[in-house]
Design a protein around this nucleic acid. Structure first.
Lengths: 222, 222
DNA sequence: CACACAAGCGGACCGCGGTCCATTTTCCTT
DNA sequence: AAGGAAAATGGACCGCGGTCCGCTTGTGTG
């Protein structure tokens, strides 16, 4: 795992998957051999079908390999591990979601006051998460994969920025972590899917949380 | 897993481990055969030693079984699964920790104003977590084991109660979940052990968080 | 004390994630 | 077109968590 490694392209993990910038980009295989790119597409297609059919949690790597008529080793070479494959499957919608709050129309995107953007961000995130919960759970299952993945970094940066814009004082970075913890995949799954709380209730509480934290932060109330 | 099961004692999971009340209690094996109780002790002792030697993350179930001179099946019969074993190892300190805020001296225990208790609770939790992080991570590794375990229920109830006492209005239950999310095992591990933030900084931000959330809740500032 | 039966035991077995490496394929160079 | 090296492949292999089931052992009963 640390001895000799090819100079570029596909180190331990994904080959052209999420890691270029902060926003993961996966679809194309800009460099590399033709058969590799073709197999990647075959695999994504097969995986997508299997996930749609049986749910992400029941899709094994071997099944994906078989469905794509490809060796098991190839799946791991292309995507690093199970989480990497799931992340690649999420790439499309994750990018759309990210762009919606990074450069989309207000109140989610730039143009609205930061508090409104923050509230809208939570709503969008909760809904995005709920829509793809299976894949996100599978992409974050083991330990602290969820903290190293690019999506989280983007969200942290975004929330931090909005808090700062909103004039919040204090440990912005940790405050952002704290806020974002409320939007944790497993927590949302637990509250919404296991305990049955409607998303609207989670959204409402998010709004409350934001108002309390931001509202108390720049002291314009006393 | 649902066909025929003995009438009492040890269903699928732990035999006499956490589940009696909300506070897990594990040590004794009140009912059951003598050799079972002896093996349970052997196993706990062996597991404890191995964890101390190699860290919880590197201790395999087979190794524990071997170290206790016992069959692998016995480990699973006694503790259900890996998480159950880790939880059993945590039982002692978890009980001490729980009692410290449920019935200990102020400001952690009853007697102090709720906001102070809440702040003290966060400090205690952060320190408790940091002290046993390896075991907690191992006890919560897979998916949403962390939401079903008794410890979490106790903490939620406690935080909810304090919020209510503090006169906070709104969706108390969800606010409690949100606050507690900041004290999530994996998050604390990430911030403290991976990113190197000192516990004091986490504590300070917890205090900030509590003040913002509670302070804005009963409107005595405007 | 003998007996019967449930409770307990252990290790073979399974499935899955992940690794390794001998072989094959692609593509660049001449 | 030929050659060769890097890149890619695939499936045997490993370790670990978890299950199963035939055998052993402790314990209450007559």
């Amino acid at each position: 795992m640390s001895t000799s490694r090819p100079p570029s392209a596909a180190p331990p993990s994904r080959s052209s998957a999420p890691s270029r910038t902060l926003l993961p980009l996966a679809d194309e295989a800009p460099q590399g051999r033709a058969d590799a790119a073709r197999n990647r597409l075959l695999l994504l297609e097969a995986a997508s079908r299997l996930v749609a059919e049986h749910g992400a949690e029941h899709v094994t790597m071997e099944a994906v390999a078989a469905a794509a008529s490809v060796g098991k080793g190839t799946v791991f070479r292309r995507f690093g591990d199970r989480a990497g494959l799931m992340l690649a499957l999420l790439d499309h919608s994750e990018r759309e979601y990210q762009q919606s709050f990074l450069s989309g129309p207000p109140p989610l995107g730039p143009g609205a006051p930061p508090v409104e953007r923050l509230v809208a961000f939570g709503m969008a995130t909760l809904r995005h998460l709920a829509a793809h919960i299976g894949l996100y759970l599978a992409a974050e299952d083991c330990a602290s994969r969820r903290f190293s993945a690019p999506p989280r970094a983007v969200r942290i940066a975004h929330v931090s920025g909005l808090l700062r814009e909103a004039g919040v004082t204090g440990d912005i970075e940790l405050l952002a972590e704290g806020l974002l913890a409320y939007l944790d995949t497993a927590l949302v799954d637990h509250l919404h899917n296991r305990r049955g709380l409607p998303i609207e209730r989670l959204e409402h509480c998010w709004q409350d949380l934001v108002v309390r934290i931001v509202g108390g932060g720049h002291g314009d109330c006393c």
